[in-house]
């Protein structure tokens, strides 16, 4: 029975406490690039979630087989295979989404959330927790993307999910759809997350950069520690 509780926690932790985007600051590129609308944000989130669950499961299955020295190339290969499969499915069954995501769809391969979870979690845990961890992280990622997409689409285009809103629609603030708006909204959301975390005295996990090969040269990890 003691196994039961942590198992469900593997799923929920990714959504708020260790939200990959707002708390661990991973996967920033797609977060900024595809959140000009809720539709593309949701599509990107779903695609990344599928890849996360599949790659986490397979890597967890193979964790005893893959030799230590070539593990990163192996992970990348597995991830790239799943990303390409998802890309083909999107092309076949949701061509407009493929157009909206463009090159960011194949770039899920280098999304550090996926490689990060493979290295930090899936390579050390059995299949079921790994799949749940992937699902939780994916849902957390999607939630953050949809939140960003909502703010940017409502303010910048005066619509939500393509539907024109009555009040905001008359004078949209275009800059929210453009790159500067992306950076700004992301900064504000992170400030809000910081504020909530300090207020509830919740333990903020260290930056998820631990798995990132950039850890040594990167100031982001140190900065995160300083401010919390």
């Amino acid at each position: 029975m003691s196994e039961q509780k942590p198992l469900y926690r593997e799923f929920t932790k990714g959504i708020i406490k260790e939200n990959p985007v707002l708390c661990l600051v991973l996967g920033t590129c797609p977060t900024l690039a595809v959140t000009t609308g809720v539709k593309s944000a949701l599509g990107m989130g779903a695609a990344a979630t599928i890849v996360l669950v599949c790659s986490n499961s397979v890597i967890s299955l193979l964790r005893r087989v893959i030799p230590e020295r070539v593990r990163i190339p192996c992970y990348i290969t597995v991830i790239a295979a799943f990303v390409t499969v998802v890309q083909m499915l999107v092309k076949a069954y949701a061509p407009s989404l493929d157009k909206a995501l463009g090159v960011y769809l194949p770039l899920i391969v280098v999304n550090c959330i996926i490689l990060g979870r493979a290295e930090m979690f899936a390579s050390k845990h059995p299949v079921l927790p790994s799949a749940l961890d992937g699902l939780g992280m994916g849902v957390g990622f999607t939630a953050a993307l949809v939140l960003m997409g909502t703010i940017r689409e409502v303010l910048g285009a005066g619509s939500w999910f393509g539907l024109r809103l009555p009040l905001a629609g008359s004078h949209p603030i275009l800059i929210f759809l453009m790159p500067p708006g992306g950076f700004f909204v992301f900064g504000m959301l992170m400030a809000a997350a910081n504020r909530l975390n300090t207020r509830s005295r919740r333990h903020t996990p260290e930056s998820g950069c631990a798995a990132c090969p950039m850890n040594e040269a990167c100031a982001k990890a140190h900065e995160k520690k300083e401010c919390t």
Binding site: V65, V70, T77, V78
Partner: peptide, 18 residues
């Protein structure tokens, strides 16, 4: 050899899947 073989296997299986 074993890492090379493992990597090769993963690549082959992935390519076949694709």
């Amino acid at each position: 050899l074993s890492p090379v073989a493992a990597l090769l296997c993963v690549c082959t299986v992935s390519a076949a899947l694709l």
